[in-house]
Simulated scan of single mutants.
Amino acid sequence: MKRIPLTMVRKDLLDIPEYRLPAGFRIRLFRKGDEHNWAKIEASVDEFSNEDSALKHFNKEFGPHIDEMTKRCVFIENEKGEEIGTATAWYGDLRGDGEISGRIHWVGIVPEYQGKKLSKPLLSAAMNLLDRYHSKAYLTSQTTSFQAVNMYLNYGFEPLMTSESCYEAWTLLEDTLNRKILDENGGSI
């Protein structure tokens, strides 16, 4: 599948879907020192070529904000207490106009735990954290993450058309997911 970047928005943080974790798993907040666990998870899902580059990115993006990470980043632990998933309830200026919105950021579950009904509880936990600080949210993804995009659509996120490639991306996703996403005018339904 062609990889096309995309952005999605959720106009409010009302009625966040809730899902329970399967038995043996738990969600916990980031603790100082967890940057290595974050790097391990994100490298395992091919966001980075290796853990060292993931850790360097973490230190650049979040290093100055470690105290905020303890309130905004969650991990899923398995029955052995190993960190196997993470999501960050971050923030940013989506439109460059100075308005700060919540951001679902760096969602990942190590490959051997994917498909075990962990993604929805993880996303719900991150969105509930966002709701403490923000009234709306956005995220960025890509067409190759179509299963995650489908979940985000089910959580009330909508396409944000930022360039001509967005129409190609969402048309491709409509075909791949076999669901109507855009209306006849090219806006989200």
Rank of each mutant, 00 (worst) to 15 (best):
Y113G: 00
Y152P: 01
S188T: 11
T144S: 12
A39R: 11
K180P: 02
D97C: 07
A87S: 12
L172D: 09
R3P: 02
S188R: 09
K180D: 14
K11H: 11
R103W: 07
L14E: 14
S101W: 06
S145W: 00
A43L: 03
F146M: 09
L6P: 13
E79M: 11
S53D: 12
G187L: 10
G63E: 01
G63H: 01
H57W: 08
Y133Q: 02
S53T: 10
A54Q: 01
E99I: 15
N185R: 06
S188D: 05
I84D: 02
N178M: 07
D131M: 12
R132T: 11
N59T: 04
E68G: 02
K117N: 13
G186P: 00
T70D: 01
A125V: 05
F75C: 05
Y19L: 02
N178G: 05
S145N: 12
E42G: 07
E79T: 13
N154R: 08
M151A: 09
G186D: 06
N154M: 08
L94D: 02
M69L: 11
L153K: 07
D15H: 06
N128F: 04
V107Y: 00
Y133C: 05
I181H: 03
A54E: 03
D183C: 00
A126P: 03
E79L: 09
R72W: 07
G96P: 00
G102M: 10
T144I: 15
F62Y: 10
M151F: 03
A89S: 10
T143V: 08
P64T: 07
Y138C: 09
F30A: 03
A23H: 06
S124Y: 07
L172Q: 09
G102Q: 06
K180R: 15
I27C: 05
S165T: 13
D97L: 08
R26T: 14
R103K: 12
A23Q: 11
R28G: 05
T144D: 11
K60I: 11
S101K: 10
I100R: 06
L122S: 04
G108E: 03
M8E: 00
D34H: 14
S145L: 15
D46I: 13
L182F: 05
L182T: 09
A54M: 02
L129S: 03
T140Q: 14
G81E: 03
V107I: 15
D12F: 10
S119G: 14
I4A: 07
T171A: 10
C73A: 14
K40M: 07
S188H: 14
Y155W: 12
T86L: 11
Y19H: 11
G102P: 02
S165N: 14
T162V: 13
F30L: 08
G98F: 05
S145G: 06
I100Y: 00
L6Q: 03
N50H: 14
Y167P: 00
V149I: 04
D97W: 08
